[in-house]
Design a protein around this nucleic acid. Sequence first.
DNA 1: AATCGCATATTGTTGAACAATCATGTGACC
DNA 2: GGTCACATGATTGTTCAACAATATGCGATT
Lengths: 241, 241
Amino acid sequence: MPSFTPQDLASDPPAAATDIWDQWLAPLEAADHAYVPVRVADVLRRAISAGQILPGTKLPEVKITTRLGVSRHTLRSAFQMLSADGLVDRRPNRGVFVHVPTSEDVREIYRIRLILETGAVRTTVFPPEATQQLIQITRGAERAREAGDVLAMGQANQEFHQRLVAQARSSMLDELMSKVLARMRLVFAGRLGDPDFHAAYVAGNVKLAELLSRNRREEAEEHLVNYLLSAEQDLLRRLKT
Amino acid sequence: MPSFTPQDLASDPPAAATDIWDQWLAPLEAADHAYVPVRVADVLRRAISAGQILPGTKLPEVKITTRLGVSRHTLRSAFQMLSADGLVDRRPNRGVFVHVPTSEDVREIYRIRLILETGAVRTTVFPPEATQQLIQITRGAERAREAGDVLAMGQANQEFHQRLVAQARSSMLDELMSKVLARMRLVFAGRLGDPDFHAAYVAGNVKLAELLSRNRREEAEEHLVNYLLSAEQDLLRRLKT
DNA sequence: AATCGCATATTGTTGAACAATCATGTGACC
DNA sequence: GGTCACATGATTGTTCAACAATATGCGATT
């Protein structure tokens, strides 16, 4: 699975007959009624989150429009959405580039998660259905770990924490958390070749869910704080090397 | 200062020779280099936040483009930004409307503020410069109250809490807080005729700043929680009537 | 080797056009 | 008189073509 290198994609491919963009960006199938810009944004979002388009890569308008068969305006509209998601950076008169996450990004991510997730735990009561759902997700994560499915493990982990925040019952907070997790995926997609990062934290999720189900709020919060702080340190350490 | 009524703006004005849009939307001055869509968004944002365009009002594309002298594409780009800010709602194939805040919105706002602001207080240390800045803002609010400048009071209040969140040092959180406060202004701009709502809370801000400056984190947090909860109840009560 | 200037490519914005969808009003029918 | 169907008009969604403004790269000049 070759993923192409940053920057030099804008220039012609060395000797490839087929342009590299063709690999990931198929023409939009004539779908029913979803707005074209959001479908375009979805395609790009998927490709970026999956690490098929690496951080730092420039996304040239004409290349993509011709591949996708949409107008430049439509693509630009999609770019705006991706920009709002924090997946791409818009550099004036230069184009949009897949955001390159930094270690400062990682620190900010965990600062936000600390506030959001502990906030959710502290300010809301978790009904049995909610904790049950969380436990369900951890079960899936454990199965994925046993099966060696790293991707599914990561997804389960993210869903767990997304659900945690969802308990605060705020679409704005949900959106922010999605944004944060998307940037998180960007960190992984970028340089992290060691993807069983999540493995160590499945157990942490299990314990957290269990504490919440027994309504041990204080302990849950303390556990969560330690969880996040150590995850941050762990991730930063891995990125250093 | 007449503010025009929702909905029926799309139809012709009763007997006015000048179209109502002309009142607030002057043609864009040929400014230097800021992107046209963001300038358009700024104009509309200002008009909406100031209550000149009331919640529920439809924003027709051609009317505004002709008044502002920009292309439809540019306006649509601006609409996307306003939509991301939560100031307008995009109804498919119908157009964009100024968001109509509900009491559920108010509850969500305070749920978010509770998490964000207490989170900022708990997870960050407030250096003297920061607390000094907060106190400075409360001074301005008190002066505004004495001068009877309700608008300035509200702005100072909002800036105070924005600064509070800013201590968490996260641009994403800053953006979210801006979004929340923008929606707050929408609540006021809408039906709230009683604008000295903020007056009661200037004292609360003063006390909070003082507690923070003395590094009384626990008390500050407790005070903040009570502050927010009572403000929410107060606001909801006023909206009911 | 470094700098300047110019040709070229890409982005930012506009205008016109058309398809698709929604809103309106008219008339037929009960 | 009221209600439904339908035709009409208006508005939004999208594309195409064009041009201005800015950045990029290359070659000439020193």
